[in-house]
Design a protein around this nucleic acid. Sequence first.
RNA 1: GGGGAGCUACGCUAACCUGGUAGACUGCUAGCUUUGGGAGCUAGUAAUCGGAGUUCAAAUCUCCGGCUCCCCA
Length: 487
Amino acid sequence: MEKSSADDKANRSITASKHANFSEWYVQVLIKSDFIDYTSVSGCIAFRPDSYFAWERVRDYVDPRLKEDGVENVYFPSLIPEHLLQKEKDHVEGFTPEVAWVTQTGNSKLDERLAVRPTSEAIMYESLSKWIRSWRDLPMRLNQWNSVVRWEFKHPTPFLRTREFLWNEGHSAFATKEEEEAEMMRIMNIYGQALKDTMAIFGVLGRKTQSEKFAGAVDSFSFEHFMPDGKGVQGPAFHMDEQLFSKAFDISFTRKDEKKDYVYQNTYAISTREFGVMVATHSDDKGLVMPPNIARFQVVIVPIYNDKNRQEVLSYAAEFKKMLDGKARVILDDRDEYSPGWKFNEWELKGTPVRVEIGGREAAENVLTVYTRYNSSKEKVEIRDFVDKIKDRLEGIQQAMYQNSKSFMLSRIKRCTSIEELGRLVEGGFMAQAPWCGSADCEKSIKDKTGAKATNMPFEAQSEAEGKKCVYCGKDAAHIVNFARSH
RNA sequence: GGGGAGCUACGCUAACCUGGUAGACUGCUAGCUUUGGGAGCUAGUAAUCGGAGUUCAAAUCUCCGGCUCCCCA
């Protein structure tokens, strides 16, 4: 029997379906699109050009906005001596299980182990205690773009749970609690905009519960995402540390009134984990779907010719590309060894937002055949019209993808008033929004009973807590919490 | 944290049960013919996850390790 065409192309196309087998689909999309690859270090991936380009776009979006807000970039060592890591108790306990250690150099054993940074508080705050002397040195708002290593035991998943990932880590020190608190909304606004304008994903902003906050923080805030497989994922986060670290690391200063005080600190981060959310949210059984703002190429031109009109069509396509250069990131796929059909599939697999087909027919009519990746629409467009409005077209796709992400998540958040209802919702692939009294015991009981963790307490929903009863104990509710199973 | 399945060339897979010549497809290289939704022919190239054991002989059987996927908590 002849092999089916589906078998023949199995090596290149996605064979798992997003709906039926999410995990397998997710990995296939990332690998077959050449977005990333596995390496021989378990749990650590290689960012190939398309994914690293996308990360650079995220960075290039966030970085100038932080600088405009007064943040300065620095760089600290990736290795942290053990005694520094031990200084803040909660911090140590939170990270110790997943720290990778350097114990030896060459053939000689080190006297003191060095941690490969899981985060940089310890190494940075030692320096801050030297650098900050007076109220005049404050605020000191630093940031670094780097990678951190967290050697998780659960089996790794590209982006969502990799053992080394890229991020920014912002660290601020202020003279007063008021200044510290005021920073939160400014930073989270930048992150929220970045999610929308780069990866086109929506997140719910809120406060973390005390059990789910960052190890070493007084209070944590986050954007929370919801994945098509019915699980929650934490997005960019902001942590108010108040004076916990400054007391542990002796970051003190002399106030205007000549009294000694400890600085108030914040930390915040956005990481490459977001790419996992982006891919899971937007991509489909044909492959990746990239938001235009971070796509390596925004427009691909596929020339369609035969032996007779090859030169004619190719030079026509090259002329067209020149009209787009400078307005969009555009590539002319003039490889002669592949058929148009092959190229269509290839660029769809890689998620290029817009494809323009140019052949004899288009040249004769002065039009283009334009295919839009995210909604699979195909249309004829006048050349002049296409070129003049390319930026609007790309921005329209970006916004439409964001709206898809937003309406998907909002449609999956369901209110509930009983623990049974909460369990059913979570089981059914929803995020359950429930009133909660605020006790850690109730939170833990909910988790034990339903498998759902508190993602965060959405700012927008908090006014609804009034008059409601805790979904577990029935006492007066203090907060509204979104519960979900998590990755 | 607990179970299960798997790993042969970049990829997908045959031979494994019943030990004995690793075979297709895809890819890649070259040539010719092609080119509007994964083109054809010819030639070439490339593989048994690592280690140990059993055996005259191991992809195949046994053990240990690594990695991947799935299910449950």
